[in-house]
Design a binder for these strands. Structure first.
Lengths: 202, 202, 202, 202
DNA sequence: GATGAATGAGGATTCATTCAT
DNA sequence: AATGAATGAATCCTCATTCAT
């Protein structure tokens, strides 16, 4: 029965997402996973190793959720790009909905203190594809650079989910899509609008 | 000498911003503040009271930085609204730059666990004015609701600062302004653009 | 295949000699012995039973190494006694050399805490013959009692081996023999010397 | 009240002497010292630091007990040397009697694993003077080298004390002195006897 | 019989909080 | 008022022992 590792990872993710790394006691995780404390230490060398594996695990699921099967957006046609973005946005929404703990945990701030190099590599492996895509899409135009756009978009999405979690708003699919459409204008601001809350143009 | 309270608050903010609530030991804070541990407990009932006061203190400084002296944006003219937004954005930027610890701390996720009601009221006292303003500005249009827009904007800004802190990008004033201009389109997407990186199209 | 017991005893002796009883983990012993932890517990009831058996085993090997085949020293002639002593000394040296772990382990101090009665009997079964022999040899004379002499001699030998192990000196066979000769004078001090580094004086 | 450090050191010495390093729990030491566990950690960084300080402390007391006020034995007259040795032996006896825990602890075997460099220096600072004295005294003769003689003597004394502790014999001052006299022959074997339980010369 | 995964009591260490000075 | 030494509950982690396979 080696899904025990899996079970522990899941329990740890939930606990860390809820109370943070320092706010979570190892035995809490073990109990939530339904195993003895010592058992947890058979699978993970120590608390720090555990949080790193939780991090990488969640991050890789995020990457898969976003990128697997998405056609490389080597598109120079704007509406294709827009559809690509809409797809990403939809996938993000799905991820945040189906794996709220993973999403919340990944967005916590104080990771830096305990993440190891391996985890940092995983971190970059998610960003890099987006960045490259953005590069092709955006670099010719004026306005903010690709890094800035990505940061804004990512932050906007995170802010949306966080606001929902804190109860400041309630999101249905429609609103999520509208939000994505609004955000698209961050990417392609100075071009004729091609979509959004009802443009006559397709 | 009652600026001792002030000194402790500042030291605590820095520590909490850096290592989080659970990652920070009370004696660390006391030492950083240059007072005895016992002294800290004369000013703050316990660690939780301390973090709540730090939170409110920082949040109120943020509110002041954003709102004090900003003319009530009871404006129905779009360019006035845009200027109002640009002003807010600029102020946010200034705050994030001059009080990075405060900004970082306020954006940490795991506050909910220990914030008390009083702190939550303060939280709302910052959002409310923005929300009201947005309400007047936006509600007539279609597209995302005001809550969503505010969440997106706030998140976008936070994402920008966080990316900068993590070293993913470097921001100068120009870029910050451009970012703000881009974000403005989240607010007023389906209206003729009136500003920004100057598009030939009006 | 019941040499498994033997293998475990050997592995345990090495571990206990190196790190002491409390410093040695049972699974370490099992792994060093190449058996499963559970298996070890089939052969030994618990850690304490194990250490007791290790102790008795080692002690009995020491006894055998010292006493088996040594003619009962029912000698009243002094040079016969000296030869008997020299033989014991040589055997001790051989034992310490061929079974350094056994020797080291047996000399550890903190045995008392966990040795059981059976082990204590074994302990005595080694000393008794020596004591009896010494008795016949020495008791008529003045000077230290037999107990004292035995304690001194045994301690002297242990001290020699320990010093060697700690690197304070290096021993070859010649030096070991000389040391034995010197120690003989502890036994027969006030009698004319009959051997040793050759003195011209009788 | 800074004898708290002293009290902890004493309690720790007793516990370590009785049950060894690994067999002693830190809270046991704290309780024996009559302080809280946390207090112990204010005075000693961790268990290993504690045992090292206990070691150095005991070793230095031993050194003082042996060497302080002993006239430098730059003696080439044999009877002066013998008196010097008798004095050392007497002092050793006194130390073993008044500080049995210190003596026992210092003779434990498994120190090597946790002693730090500073402790090892202290170790040598006790041996060195003896070795130098022995050097002058002995090197001209044949027989065992100085290192060997020292190891034998030290071991003999330790064996004596250990035998007493284990109940194999009981020592009074007279017997201790006789034992010392016997041991002197280890040092000066091939010379005419000048003292001991039988000298015509005073 | 053999195994080693699982367990939880126990050990080392930290830290929020108190209180004598 | 200010301090920081003292405390012990709580934390991380280990390891003797069991038991299902």
């Amino acid at each position: 029965m080696d899904d025990k590792r899996r079970i522990i990872l899941d329990a740890a993710l939930e606990a860390f997402a809820e109370r943070g790394y320092h706010g979570t006691a190892v035995p809490e995780v073990a109990e939530a996973a339904g195993v003895g404390t010592g058992t947890l230490y058979r699978y993970f060398e120590n608390k720090e190793a555990l949080v790193n594996e939780v991090y990488r695990d969640a991050k890789q699921r995020l990457r898969a959720a976003l990128l697997v099967g998405v056609p490389d957006p080597d598109l120079y046609r704007l509406d294709a790009a827009e559809m690509w973005f809409a797809e990403l946005w939809r996938r993000l929404g799905t991820f945040a909905k189906t794996e709220p703990d993973a999403f919340r945990f990944l967005e916590m701030q104080d990771h830096v203190a305990y993440l190891d190099n391996k985890s940092r590599e995983v971190e970059l492996s998610v960003l890099a594809p987006l960045w490259l895509a953005g590069k092709r899409l955006r670099d010719r135009s004026d306005g903010p650079s690709v890094d800035v756009i990505i940061a804004l978009l990512w932050g906007a999405f995170v802010g949306l989910i966080k606001a929902q979690r804190l109860g400041y708003l309630r999101l249905d699919d429609k609103q999520l899509e509208q939000a994505g459409a609004a955000c698209w204008r961050l990417v392609a601001p100075d071009l004729p609008r091609t979509r959004g809350p009802r443009s006559k143009k397709s």
